[in-house]
């Protein structure tokens, strides 16, 4: 159907004035209940969602912590964002040097090649990403798609490790959006991740990792 015909039917009904227009919502409430210690609050709220929060003093500590997590998971390979998008510039190089294989996250355009590439993700154990922001109120991290930022890295592996610069902690989604509304929609996909994948579809019993990662590690640097 043509847009004009569709809209005309809507416009006719709007014309009946069944709903009083309260006007657009003014700028949202900007005060935060979480002004003081964002890091401590983030730790509490993220932990509550089922994520694990880690801290590293410097880049070396961070990299060895990640390598340790990978060893514990008996992982041989990982899927990750490109190094310039993770606030640990040497991470992927050093992991590769340590013998971990990096799976390419770039999906080829041809349809069959695309499927074949993606099937290769089937058992991928570890995904490593940066994070554009962290939200104290909800314990969330924000991931934007783009060049060198495969969405699958935070989605398909059983374990997702996200590296977040503590300077990018914000009080709440509301406040982050008010300051970054363009950033959120300039890319194809912005995802706010709050804890690992979960479901309560069976008798309301919460379990993790039904489709997305079962474990979410957030490393604050």
């Amino acid at each position: 159907m043509r847009e004009e015909t569709f809209i005309a039917a809507v416009r006719r009904s709007v014309g009946f004035g069944r709903l009083e227009d309260p006007g657009p919502n003014p700028l949202p409430r900007m005060e935060s209940d979480f002004a003081d210690d964002l890091e401590a609050i983030f730790d509490t709220t993220a932990t509550r969602t089922g994520a694990t929060v880690h801290y590293a003093r410097n880049e070396n500590d961070a990299i060895s912590l990640i390598a340790q997590l990978m060893k514990e998971a008996k992982a041989e390979s990982f899927l990750s964002w490109d190094k310039e998008h993770i606030p640990l510039p040497d991470l992927t190089t050093k992991l590769e040097a340590a013998g971990f294989r990096r799976t390419s996250g770039h999906v080829p355009p041809d349809i069959e090649a695309r499927k074949a590439h993606q099937i290769g993700y089937f058992d991928c154990p570890i995904g490593i990403t940066g994070a554009d922001a962290g939200l104290a109120e909800t314990g969330s991290i924000i991931l934007r798609s783009g060049i060198g930022r495969p969405r699958m890295a935070s989605l398909i592996p059983k374990i997702h490790i996200a590296v977040l610069n503590r300077e990018h902690l914000w009080p709440s989604l509301r406040i982050w959006l008010a300051n970054h509304s363009d950033d959120a929609t300039a890319v194809a996909n912005t995802t706010i991740v709050t804890g690992p994948s979960r479901t309560a579809d069976i008798e309301m019993i919460i379990t993790h990792g039904v489709h997305g990662p079962r474990y979410l590690h957030i490393l604050l640097i």
Binding site: H106, G146, T185, A186, G195
Partner: peptide, 26 residues
């Protein structure tokens, strides 16, 4: 809905995969 502060994954999609994006729908 579920009593969570936010759903585990809240996604904002603005268009298909952009040129040279690593993945996503064409």
């Amino acid at each position: 809905a579920t009593g969570q502060a936010l759903t585990s994954y809240s996604t904002v999609i603005t268009g298909p995969r952009q040129p040279d994006d690593a993945d996503g729908p064409d």
